[in-house]
Amino acid sequence: KSAVKALFDYKAQREDELTFTKSAIIQNVEKQDGGWWRGDYGGKKQLWFPSNYVEEMI
Rank of each mutant, 00 (worst) to 15 (best):
T21W: 10
I25A: 04
R14Q: 10
G34H: 08
E30V: 15
S2V: 15
K11I: 15
Q32V: 15
Y10P: 00
K11E: 13
E55Y: 09
D9V: 03
E55M: 11
F8C: 15
W48Q: 05
V29S: 01
K22Y: 08
W48Y: 10
F8N: 09
L18F: 02
F20G: 02
L47G: 15
I58Q: 13
T19H: 05
P50W: 04
W48P: 04
A3M: 14
N52D: 12
L18S: 01
W37Q: 03
A6C: 07
I26M: 00
E30M: 14
S23C: 15
D33M: 10
S2C: 15
Y53E: 02
K22R: 11
L7F: 06
F8V: 10
Q13R: 11
R38Q: 08
Q27K: 12
E55P: 00
F49A: 01
R38H: 04
Y53V: 11
E30R: 12
S2R: 12
N52R: 11
Y10E: 02
G42E: 10
N28K: 05
D33F: 09
A3S: 15
E30S: 13
L47F: 11
E17D: 05
D9W: 05
D9Y: 06
N28P: 00
Q13C: 14
S23M: 10
S51N: 08
A12G: 10
K1A: 13
G43A: 10
G34N: 09
Y10C: 07
N28L: 04
V4H: 08
Q46F: 06
K45V: 15
R38G: 02
D9G: 10
E30W: 14
W48S: 05
K45S: 12
T21R: 11
E55W: 07
Q13V: 10
Q27D: 11
G43I: 06
E55Q: 11
D40H: 01
D9M: 03
V4A: 11
A12P: 05
N52I: 11
I58L: 12
R38M: 08
K22F: 07
S51K: 11
A24R: 00
Q27L: 15
N28S: 05
Q32M: 15
W36L: 04
W48H: 05
T19W: 04
A24P: 03
V54Y: 00
E56W: 07
R14E: 08
S23D: 15
E55F: 08
R14Y: 09
Q32Y: 15
K45F: 15
S23E: 14
K45R: 11
E55G: 07
G34P: 06
G35E: 12
S23T: 10
A24Q: 04
P50Y: 04
K45L: 14
I26N: 03
I26G: 00
G34W: 05
A6P: 04
L7S: 06
L7D: 05
G39N: 01
M57G: 08
K5Q: 11
F20H: 03
G35Y: 08
Y41Q: 04
E17N: 02
D40N: 04
Y10L: 00
G39P: 01
E17F: 05
A6H: 02
W37T: 01
S51M: 11
G39W: 04
K5L: 12
F20I: 04
W36I: 03
A24W: 03
F49Q: 00
G42M: 10
I25Y: 07
S2F: 14
W37A: 03
R14I: 05
D16H: 08
S2N: 13
G43E: 09
G42W: 05
I26F: 02
I25M: 06
A6G: 04
E56F: 07
F8Y: 14
K31R: 12
Q46C: 09
M57F: 14
G39L: 01
K45T: 15
Y53F: 12
Q13E: 10
Q32T: 14
T21E: 15
D16W: 10
G34K: 07
Y53N: 05
F8K: 15
Q46S: 11
F8M: 13
M57C: 14
R14A: 12
D9Q: 06
Q27T: 15
D33V: 11
W48R: 09
K22E: 09
S51I: 08
G34C: 10
R14T: 12
I26S: 00
G39Q: 00
E30L: 15
A24C: 11
T21M: 11
D9C: 09
L18E: 02
A6L: 03
G43T: 09
W36C: 07
G42P: 00
T19K: 00
K44C: 12
W48G: 03
P50Q: 04
S51P: 05
V29M: 00
Q32C: 15
E55D: 08
A12L: 00
L47C: 15
P50S: 04
K45A: 10
P50T: 02
F8S: 09
L18H: 07
W37D: 05
W36S: 04
A3R: 11
I25V: 12
A12V: 01
L7A: 06
N52V: 10
D40I: 00
F49N: 02
L47D: 04
I58E: 14
N52E: 13
E55L: 08
D40R: 00
V54N: 02
R38E: 02
W36Y: 09
V29H: 01
K31S: 06
I26R: 00
Y41I: 06
G43R: 06
R14P: 03
Y10G: 01
A24Y: 00
E55S: 10
L18G: 03
W37N: 03
W37R: 00
K31I: 10
N52W: 13
G42Y: 06
D16S: 09
I25G: 01
F20W: 01
K5P: 00
G43F: 05
G35H: 09
K22W: 06
G34E: 07
S2D: 12
G34R: 05
E56R: 04
E56A: 09
F8G: 07
Y41T: 04
A12N: 05
D33R: 08
Y10V: 02
F20T: 02
E56V: 12
Y53D: 01
L47H: 14
F49Y: 02
W36H: 04
K11S: 12
E30K: 13
Q46G: 13
I58G: 13
G39Y: 01
S23R: 07
N28F: 06
V54K: 02
F20M: 04
D33Q: 12
G35A: 09
